[in-house]
Computed example of a mutant assay.
Amino acid sequence: MKQPIVMSYSGGKDSSLALFKLLKNPDWEVKRLLTTANSTYNRSSMHGVRTELFQQQAESIGLPLDVIWLTPEDGGDGYQRKMKKALENYKANGLNHIAFGDLYLEDVRAYRETMNDMIGLHSLFPVWGIPTQEFAKQFIQLGFKAIVVCVDTTQLDASFCGREFNQVFLDDLPNGVDWCAEKGEFHTFCYDGPIFSKSILFEKGDQILRENRFQYIDLLPI
């Protein structure tokens, strides 16, 4: 019998491949997607993507999307409080498992597991430990398509922002930059691939540098 599970979904490459593996696994039935967004800017918290686009992702995937709305005033404590409330609601409704797209960051995994253990949820990491070059090749070979939406300019040149995440992009990365950006070098938005019933359409908008460090590109829904 399949176990119901929630997928923590950022809309980027890591969580998209993790979701793909869950959907293909006969032991699991993905019931819902969970993400966070900034209520002030109406954009995803990490990637700066407009909420309309990740709502379109969920519709194309065919799963309901739960959004935890965060404000600049929330900080770490506010995030934990709102996340805890969402997870407790899942537990109360019979959803006892939640999956994440983390690959290697032990401290992030430990944080998630500690929070979930307190609530009585079991944590699952479908892509944990996959070597990042192998992960990137799998992602591309499966037919996923993604665009780089944010670059940490202290680790990677701003010119990489707005580029397609493909083999040419990977070949152009400087030595020391992880292919899956496990050190936070860049973030992606996945707009096509085997988990979607249709492509997510957008136009490239303006780019902006925030905090004198992070280069973002605005994706405009079509």
Rank of each mutant, 00 (worst) to 15 (best):
G193Q: 02
K21V: 01
K145S: 10
G176C: 09
H47E: 15
L219W: 09
T132L: 09
F196N: 03
Q207N: 12
F139P: 01
L17I: 04
F100A: 03
L95I: 14
N175L: 14
S15M: 00
H187W: 02
L95D: 10
P221S: 06
T188M: 01
G120E: 09
P4F: 06
D117G: 11
P221C: 05
A18H: 03
E106S: 13
Q141H: 13
G78I: 05
R43H: 12
S16E: 02
A158I: 01
D172W: 08
P126S: 10
I217L: 00
Q133L: 15
D178M: 01
S10N: 09
D157Q: 11
F189I: 02
L219P: 00
H122F: 03
L105C: 12
F139M: 08
L19M: 00
D218H: 12
H122A: 13
P126G: 04
L103P: 08
G62M: 02
L53C: 07
D74G: 00
Y216A: 07
L209G: 11
H47R: 02
F214W: 04
N38P: 00
A158T: 06
C180L: 02
F139N: 02
I147P: 00
T188L: 04
R50N: 12
Q80R: 15
Q138G: 09
Q138T: 12
A110V: 13
T36Y: 01
Y191E: 05
F214Y: 15
V6Q: 03
F125T: 05
V168P: 08
F186R: 10
T188D: 02
P174R: 08
E164Y: 06
Y9R: 07
I195Y: 08
D14L: 01
K21I: 05
N96H: 11
F135H: 05
V108R: 14
D14P: 05
F100E: 01
N166C: 15
K31W: 04
V49N: 04
R213P: 02
F160S: 10
D74E: 01
S10M: 07
F202S: 00
